[in-house]
Simulated assay, not measured.
Amino acid sequence: MTRSRSKSIPDHEIIIVGGGICGAAVAYGLAARGCRVTLIDAPTRTNMASRANVGLIWCQSKFLHLPDYARWGFHSARLFPELTRELQKISGIEIPVHYRGGIIACLGEGEYDTRREYIENLGQVLDSYPGGMISRGELEKKLPHIKFGKEVSGAAWCEEDGIIEPLALLRAFKVAFSKLGGTFIETVAYEVQPRNGGFLVITEQGPLNCERVVLAAGLANRRLARFALPELPVYADKGQVLLVERMPYVMPIPVLGVSQTFGGTVIIGFRHEFSGHDTGIVPEDVATEGIWATRVWPELGKKRLIRAWSGLRVMPEDKQAIYSTLPGHPRAFLLNTHSAVTLAAAHARYLPDFIVGAGLPDVAASMTLKRFGYDCQL
């Protein structure tokens, strides 16, 4: 991977600030189209949100109130097999992935009925839905090596969900990007300034000049976009996670909230907390998650807890992705989403065209800053 440490002000065609899965997917897509792209990411021992990510490709039971966003997720999921084949071929990196569906376990008949009603309504809004409710017996047939707790009454099932190793996906994006001619600079970006019709990105290694800039830096976009927006409508959504010791691999179909990794460990977590940038672990909160998980899968209660940690998700104010130019700056682009894994295939396929001047796909056309009252030239 090419790393630049120049102190001059070189010219770049497109600079993407933020090398997580969202930024890396778009960088890869642009490089595949022959664009001269520079990807900037801060040096870190961890891969930010990707280290606190189970890697679910998850569409089911989402966004009844935002049907286009639901359709966008399903469309991206259908693009994943082609994307992973392509990435593996170019990067040479094997990406562990299963496209075998996904499960939401229900505890008790009341929870089962509530979930069923939601899915029925979602199916009506979308005109079709690739899944539905399954009985406890059907659930046990799908995951025959798991002995579910006595309270588990059945589950919601969606055939188009899946699970992928998020760090392998991220690495494959970056290696493929580099092999396609992209430039990677490992440095901190402090500020973006408009300059002569383009932009100056102020970094720890010095300023970089570009024609187009793409802000894909998660929560840091609030700081980086201040040249155009006084307040970006995104906030931190904290999740707290438990990791259980390695077990025999018995869960090729992920269960939301208690999923087994490809290495055999089990990640437990489903919380959404809004406490600013506080990343402290709250023992009583993660204990609630652990108790729930043992009700679903009692065997976990006999296993050793390896560690607990928290992570900050990026959450747009209305929970829908933002793909937009910035007000007054048609060559400055903002990308913010909390579904970076699920939407990675759509991001790699469609957002590069948006960045070089085409519009957004019809299903994503409303996902701009205009919905927050900003005047954006598209």
Rank of each mutant, 00 (worst) to 15 (best):
V286P: 07
L30Q: 04
P67C: 09
R195E: 15
S8G: 08
R307N: 10
T44L: 13
R100H: 14
A228E: 00
A308M: 12
D68W: 04
I119D: 00
L200P: 03
E165R: 14
C376I: 15
L360T: 05
V241P: 04
P283R: 09
Y118G: 04
G290E: 06
K89R: 15
R212P: 08
L305C: 13
L169D: 05
L369R: 07
K370T: 13
Q205N: 13
R226T: 15
Y69L: 04
A52Y: 01
G131Q: 11
T342S: 14
C376H: 05
N53S: 15
G276H: 11
F372W: 08
C210S: 14
I146C: 12
R36F: 07
V213C: 05
K142T: 06
L335T: 05
Y190S: 14
L229H: 09
C22Q: 13
I103R: 09
A364W: 00
G34Q: 02
P96T: 11
I119A: 01
E151C: 07
E140Y: 01
I268P: 10
Q260Y: 01
M315N: 12
T183I: 13
Q124P: 01
G110T: 13
L83S: 09
D68F: 06
T294P: 06
A340N: 08
R5V: 11
K150W: 02
E159C: 06
K174G: 02
V286L: 13
R226L: 07
I163Y: 03
G19M: 05
L229V: 14
L232Y: 01
I202G: 05
A358R: 03
D318Q: 10
K179M: 07
Y190W: 13
G73N: 15
H75K: 12
A49Q: 07
L126Y: 02
L369A: 07
R136E: 01
K302R: 15
T368F: 15
K238G: 08
N221I: 03
Y374L: 10
L143S: 09
R331Y: 05
S153N: 12
V341H: 05
H98I: 04
K7A: 13
R85Q: 14
G198S: 06
I281G: 12
G34F: 02
E245H: 11
I103T: 07
P166T: 09
I16T: 08
V188I: 14
V175D: 02
G218H: 03
A348S: 15
Y249G: 09
L360Q: 03
A176V: 08
N53M: 04
A358E: 00
G137Y: 02
E13T: 13
P361Y: 00
A346P: 07
F274D: 04
I202W: 05
S324L: 11
V314T: 15
R115N: 11
E138S: 13
Y350N: 14
Y350H: 15
I202Y: 03
L360M: 10
A358K: 04
G373I: 00
A293Y: 01
G197D: 01
T44S: 14
L326G: 06
L139Q: 10
G301V: 05
A77D: 00
G197K: 11
R45T: 13
G269L: 07
P233A: 12
G182Q: 02
D11C: 06
W157C: 08
I146K: 12
A31K: 11
A220F: 01
L334Q: 00
L79I: 03
A345G: 10
G311K: 10
I104D: 08
V244N: 09
F199K: 02
F148S: 10
G19E: 02
W157T: 10
L143D: 05
M367K: 10
E231W: 08
F63V: 00
